[in-house]
Design a protein around this nucleic acid. Structure first.
Lengths: 339, 339
DNA sequence: CGTTATACCGAAAACGGTTTCGTAAATAAA
DNA sequence: TTTATTTACGAAACCGTTTTCGGTATAACG
């Protein structure tokens, strides 16, 4: 009934607190007989040490934080799976903070990570963050952190990302090969590393193919709620009927494109070819099946977490060291770009 | 550089630790002038109190745990959104534990929640849990918890769920109305509350329509990895060509059905009509668009969290009290059941 | 036998806050 | 003026661990 602490355990056993504590962690200072007794009693009484007392004393929280924009997104949930996988093997706990693409919320979350609440943080920045002041605080407090997927450019720090530029290039190349004359790139926020790199690759491919001279705007920012995006796309396709190819920079844009086409009776791929950066499992069974550039989401989460733990485990983490690991995505052609 | 504690803050201000502590929490014992000074200095030095020291003394962790099978599932990620939404308004932190449908992992996670790591827990049980011994520990330690979606039947506790039985009934009724003679229900685990209730409703509708006498097995368990499920479905549809309707109890089953039909050239809805319990956003743009029974995932998470917090906030939480709130799902007819 | 290792255990000081309680000064009441 | 009350602050206990530092008893050694 009343809280079971190491003190009551000690009293029950007729031992000192120190002895019990050491016995529980298999110290060599304790005889094997008493160890056995202690373990048995602890098991019997179902003793679980108070994690916060331990954290306070050891200055280790045994927990990491994951800060990301959203969890209802296949990429991020897969990444979380990867992170969780390595966290559990390390016996670590994971706190989740959702920024919902708000800089304020993200800053707040980062602030929570100061002062020893976590031993490290994994972060994928929101589309609204244009300054890294909050992340610099982490650096100042010497708290290990690593970016995954959405990094902060020009910021020296460990990051694990995918080959965004190359994929943007490949996407455009495919559309061009399939005959598109006016493909556009749908961005969510050009301040986002993934978007700017992908669109840069996209633009480069257009330039290489000599398609940039027909003066159309080929990188378009789509922001807001799903409904707002829907309307923007509606207007875009109505205004510019020459658009014959689209690269969606993120998952949620792809869905809205399909919905707009459904409503406006635009045929994919005949009227419009579509490629999406996405890990959507339903891509093969969409109408039509969707050509995707699929990121290794689980692996990105996993290797980011692994990188974080190597930093946590060495006492002197050279946080300022920039180490970028790039896990390539794969282009999977399906019917949305056929013909 | 060195950790900034309340002690250094106090020394810097020429005040006692106690005074600073009280000033920071706006105690009436402190004059407004010193409060101002303290706040200013705290702001300037960027002081963040150590949460674990505070937790230890106050016996409150300001964090809750969410234990669920999976995060890469639309229903659960939406539920997490709902949970997070209320947690942030309460200034609470949320720990996430993924059971991946394993009882052992789930038990482990529950154990972590003992001993004051969290002030409460939200749990959606794995398909492998058939005993509630681990959850009883929570009760014994008087830790507030509430089930969401996947409850443990015959267990007196607060739960927020959806109207599974009625939806199973409705799903079957729709298939029958559309002319199905041998509809089947695809379960993932009959030990799971949601599945058993949904299948019970399904069976009841079949009985009411007089369709149970043709002796076919109409509730089928599909377990294992996605690949294993794919194979099971392949065999099922090959063996029993009379099956003309399917209700998928969970999201991931629906996808496999579509894939099998794609491979075996089975036409949906002509050869086979499909309904899925799912919150898939891509349902309208699938080929064909998928008829779903859509759970109010966000609201389930939200109200579960709200229920948890009312328990946390009253000192004497009558945990044994069973209070079931049911949030109804909605059947959305699409092309996978047309004709 | 005296000395030194070794094995085993306990007292007490941390860790960084919160909270109770005491107290001195200032103010109000008598 | 004396007494009671309020205001503003500090000393110290406490939360539940971990860890350092001794200390005692026994064994090993010369």
């Amino acid at each position: 009934m009343s809280k079971l602490t190491i003190k009551t355990l000690a009293k029950e056993l007729g031992l000192s607190i120190a002895t019990v504590s050491k016995a529980l962690k298999d110290s060599h200072e304790i005889s094997s007989e008493t160890k056995k007794k202690v373990l048995a009693m602890a098991e019997q009484l179902n003793y679980v040490p108070n994690p916060y007392a331990s954290s306070l004393r050891k200055q280790k929280s045994k927990t990491i934080a994951v800060i990301l924009p959203e969890v209802a997104d296949n990429f991020f949930s897969l990444a979380i799976n990867g992170i969780q996988a390595v966290a559990t093997t390390k016996n670590y706990h994971v706190l989740i903070y959702l920024s919902h693409e708000s800089f304020e919320i993200e800053k707040n979350a980062v602030n929570h990570c100061l002062s020893g609440r976590v031993d490290g943080v994994l972060i994928s920045v929101s589309s609204a963050t244009t300054t890294a002041s909050h992340i610099e605080k982490l650096q100042n407090e010497n708290i290990p952190f690593v970016f995954f997927d959405r990094e902060f450019e020009n910021f020296k720090a460990p990051k694990v990302i995918t080959n965004d530029y190359a994929c943007g290039y490949e996407a455009a190349k495919l559309l061009i090969k399939k005959g598109c004359k006016q493909p556009v790139f749908l961005s969510t926020s050009e301040s986002l590393s993934i978007c700017s790199k992908r669109s840069a690759g996209f633009a480069a491919a257009l330039a290489d193919a000599g398609l940039t001279n027909n003066k159309h705007e080929f990188v378009i920012d789509c922001t807001g709620t799903q409904e707002m995006i829907f309307e923007q796309l509606q207007k875009l396709l109505k205004k510019n009927k020459k658009i014959d190819g689209i690269v969606a920079s993120v998952e949620k844009l792809a869905m809205q494109i399909y919905l707009v086409c459904l409503e406006k009776n635009i045929n994919i791929p005949d009227d419009l070819k579509v490629i999406a950066f996405s890990t959507l499992e339903t891509a093969p069974i969409l109408n039509p099946s969707l050509t995707t550039i699929t990121q290794p989401a689980f692996e990105i989460g996993k290797t980011a977490a692994e990188a974080l733990f190597t930093m946590i485990e060495k006492k002197k983490h050279t946080i300022t060291a920039e180490s970028v690991t790039v896990l390539p995505s794969t282009l999977i052609e399906r019917n949305s770009t056929s013909g």
